[in-house]
Amino acid sequence: MEISASGRLVVRITAADVGKRVSVRQRLDLPDTGGEFTDTVGVLTSWDDHGLVITRRDGEAVRIAESTLVAGKVVPSAPARRRGPSASYAELARVAARGWRPLESERLGEWELRAAAGFTRRANSVLPLGDPGRPLDDALTAVREWYAERGLPAYVQVATGGDGTEELLGAELAARGWVREVSAELWVGALAPVADRAEGAGVVLARAADAGWLARYQRKGVGEVALRVLGSGASVWFASVPGEGEVPAAIGRCVVDGRWAGFAAVEVDPGARRRGLATEVMAALALRALDEGASAGWLQVEADNVGARALYGRLGFAVHHAYHHYRFAGSDAGVAGSAGVAGSAGVAGSAGDGG
């Protein structure tokens, strides 16, 4: 903790340090604490009139009132490990879900029901990690009703190559009239080898997606809902490579969450392909993630996105598991299905962001 020459604790961080790894001490503003203090170490992800938010290595976001700060300083980033990542399906599924948050969610036992006005299936489907707390048929009825109330088709995201129970759920869904529509894969890889490819191609990093970034983004008609989903996550970065006009030649998105960095929306202007811009975007984002203490990367890509799969393979990523979206196609699907859900159009010659 930072201590001045006179022995007093001092705060040596400001809002300008957002994105850096910090250590802070705060006074507990609770009754009967007797003047106790608590320390927090992590990435300073925001600082506004409501206080500051520090995201710890495990992904937990800690909100701290500025008035309770008694000391704080920027600290060196934790050294990144150069070994390959290893993780269970459940860990990666939760990390991926935190990096692409819906506008609305509700728990059904250990299942999470997610909705975001139809922007991507990932943000508008059930993530079933465990027991729903009731018989399966009752749980699926509750799922269909929940999505029907929001004018959305009912989707359940199911993995293969996970912990084994996911495959069983897929079979149960199929037997009950649920249809598998979109499949994709989650790939993992070490960050350091990707960051080592950075050659300084003028990649610009920002905390928010500007008009130029959105103009290059593959999903058209991006509105407020999409912006909120894109901006969700523990520590989010948007990368751009300036083009000849206002629209960047290449873009990408990364969310840092503990030891993991998730990549998405890596896209290149068709006229600027084969110049290594997608690699430069990935490398710049990986370097930033390493600075924040991450060591492993994950990303999602559909099976038919040939260009993205080739790029990821060259960067050392490999398939961890596949996941699929099952849609209910029974008698009540017509009402719920009136609102289309944006899928994942694979980006030719670039890296998409899954379903």
Rank of each mutant, 00 (worst) to 15 (best):
L191F: 10
A192M: 01
D196Y: 01
D196M: 03
R197Y: 05
A198K: 11
V203D: 14
L205W: 09
L205F: 00
A206C: 05
D210V: 02
A211V: 10
G212A: 10
Q218L: 10
K220I: 14
A226R: 09
L230H: 02
G231Y: 02
G233E: 02
A234V: 04
A234R: 11
S235Y: 13
A239R: 08
V241W: 06
V241R: 13
G245H: 05
E246P: 03
I251C: 04
G252I: 08
V255G: 07
V255L: 03
V255F: 04
R259A: 14
G262D: 09
A264K: 13
A264D: 14
A264Q: 11
A265S: 14
V266C: 11
V266P: 00
V266F: 03
E267D: 13
G271T: 04
G276H: 06
A278W: 02
E280G: 12
A284D: 03
L285Q: 13
L285A: 10
R288F: 06
R288W: 02
L290R: 04
L290A: 14
E292K: 01
A294R: 10
S295P: 01
L299D: 05
Q300E: 15
V301S: 14
V301D: 12
E302G: 12
A303V: 08
D304C: 01
V306A: 13
A308V: 07
